[in-house]
Design a protein around this nucleic acid. Structure first.
Lengths: 340, 340
DNA sequence: TTAACCAACCAAACCGTTTCGGTCATCGTT
DNA sequence: AACGATGACCGAAACGGTTTGGTTGGTTAA
């Protein structure tokens, strides 16, 4: 592999001059510049990034710490990150916490979780990354898990400390939009199947739903708000409960697609047609949504945009370390299919 | 950050000695070793991997070139790779070719595809990775796309040149196993909905099906072999065709889950019950499989194991560059659910 | 005429490791 | 007593760049 020295000899100049030509760090005569460029071609020079990084302390590499690459939104987010980084000439060093396996739903084991995260961060830091993006699987706060870092840190799909930027999506507006869509289709009795009562997305999405209903002057009758656990079965079960009501809803807004799938199957089993008898809406735009009968109208999360934005944020922080942390909330879009 | 020199000064030895203590490259007196270890603790020394790599030419980093991280099997494979590399103290540098966007189904644009791959490989090489794993989205041959490389290269879920190792899964045995399962449940008239006629997996899976039927002494009547295009709609359509036959099959083996979903819906629409009237089997174990009514009996691909094995292969090649390329084919497992 | 300035380039230090080739006691042989 | 062997360590040269602080020769202004 050719080195700077080889180029310098071929061009009859010093290595300093070659370096300046390559990086444009100093004005040089046209003649010399020309000669150096020719020499670079001639000896097939490619710069050694290791040596460069050793001297400059900059690796042009971003560490991406994912909770689990198999988590639903993660590949899309990583796709957006990778695309944006590549365009800017940055590389992506990935570390997977494998949270789907052992720690999922064991948040009481904070210590184990912390050490896992610290291991990941240390591994990335040992590679001298210029910054770190944390990619979560859930929309939740993680401030208590992170020690302060002297490199830029950006959270994607999760929230971190006050001093760190994050990029997330707008649960509340999306839920309100979907509710308004149902109302615009003539529905006045709209029930909801929410997720875990105390989870962050449930709260936000409920807010959106209630606000939209209120603004439209529509009541939310007793029993129209059901709580599930995000899983298929709970959607099935809670829909059965809704059907027991004296005044049935004409639309069911399930706050994720799995529960919506359960709802549709429960309705089918009860001999009701979707959307003729009852409309069903979902949230998340999982793969399953398009293959349900009928295909599910749902909220598409801006996963890829979250990745793009997170990468843009981290590059911004690297270029200018004193920009204040930004809180970036991206809007969702509604995917109208045939279930409404 | 403390350096070797700081440690050396603190321990009153030379940097050479400290290096030898750390790497165990030379025998030293117990006394000195002890003093150096204490000094390392005292100054909070962490080795600078950049300097180390510059000197040694080894980065302990593997480049992972994925066709598209959003591709179905890819996250699972990457998960297996990441896990195995981390255990061995290796890092994972990822580059995404984003093939889902522009190039998918445009294989005639070989040149564009080649340059895309070469860009990725060059970016990884510029980071001085110790080896590269190529992660495909389809089970197909790619020999014509790769230039010879002077670093270890392993293909996961795809096949490369003769001289490169690959890790894949056993289509044929899986299809044979599924056919045998259907036979063992008493089915004798088993139809098949295959994928694209000329694709590699279609060929292998058809082989397995035909072999199993033949071994069981069962005939394959005219019209029992249908070809789809891997998509939902083709499953629906071809099932309708099967229902037009005078002697209907009692089981339909769709060669992926999407077509199986189409098949189930076609059967439902025709007023037939699955599995009571007709059994349906799939292939791939997509997420949708578990949410169909009834949940789909299907073939689970050993995606994660492919990743684990690919990572193990590349580490093997790095440790010993002269081991011959290996061809690793992993068995699938059948997931019995309620559709059979 | 001379000081001041500038353009154009170079030599060498530096980043933090690894490793080659010594040096210097000490010890056992003859 | 002279010699070679051995054990324990060190100095300095790499690795391949960047960057600081020059030097050189020519031009300009007083």
């Amino acid at each position: 592999m050719a080195t700077l020295k080889d180029v310098a000899e071929a061009a009859g100049v010093s290595t300093a001059t070659v370096s300046h030509v390559i990086n444009g760090t100093k004005k040089l005569s046209n003649d010399t510049t020309e000669r150096v460029l020719m020499a670079i071609q001639a000896v097939h020079y490619t710069p050694n990034t290791l040596a460069k990084s050793l001297r400059s302390g900059e690796t042009r590499t971003i560490g991406v710490l994912v909770e689990d690459i198999r988590g639903l939104p993660v590949p899309d987010i990583v796709c957006g990150i990778g695309e944006t980084l590549a365009k800017a000439g940055y590389r992506m060093l990935m570390y997977d916490l494998h949270l789907l396996e052992q720690l999922y739903n064991q948040y009481e084991q904070i210590t184990a979780y912390r050490t896992r995260i610290n291991n990941g961060i240390n591994l990335l830091l040992s590679a001298h990354v210029d910054g770190i993006i944390y990619v979560g699987m859930h929309d939740r706060h993680l401030d208590y898990l992170f020690d302060p870092l002297d490199k830029p840190l950006v959270f994607a799909y999760s929230h971190g400390n006050q001093q760190d930027s994050f990029v997330s999506y707008d649960n509340q507006t999306a839920a309100a939009d979907m509710t308004r869509l149902l109302i615009s289709k003539g529905h006045r009795r709209i029930a909801v199947i929410a997720g875990h009562p105390h989870s962050y997305p449930t709260g936000k999405r409920m807010n959106g739903y209630q606000l939209a209903m209120q603004k439209a002057g529509l009541p939310i009758p007793e029993g129209y708000i059901r709580y599930g656990d995000w899983e298929y079965d709970s959607g099935y079960r809670e829909t059965q409960e809704l059907l027991k009501l004296v005044i049935r809803p004409t639309a069911v807004f399930a706050m994720n697609d799995l529960m919506a799938a359960g709802a549709i199957h429960a309705l089918n089993d009860a001999g009701l047609k979707v959307p003729a008898d009852i409309a069903v809406a979902g949230f998340d735009n999982r793969e399953i949504a398009q293959y349900l009968q009928p295909p599910l109208t749902t909220v598409a999360l801006p996963t890829r945009e979250i990745g793009v934005s997170a990468a843009a944020q981290i590059l911004e922080h690297i270029r200018n370390p004193r920009v204040p942390p930004s809180r970036n909330i991206i809007l969702c879009t509604i995917l109208e299919r045939r279930s409404v």
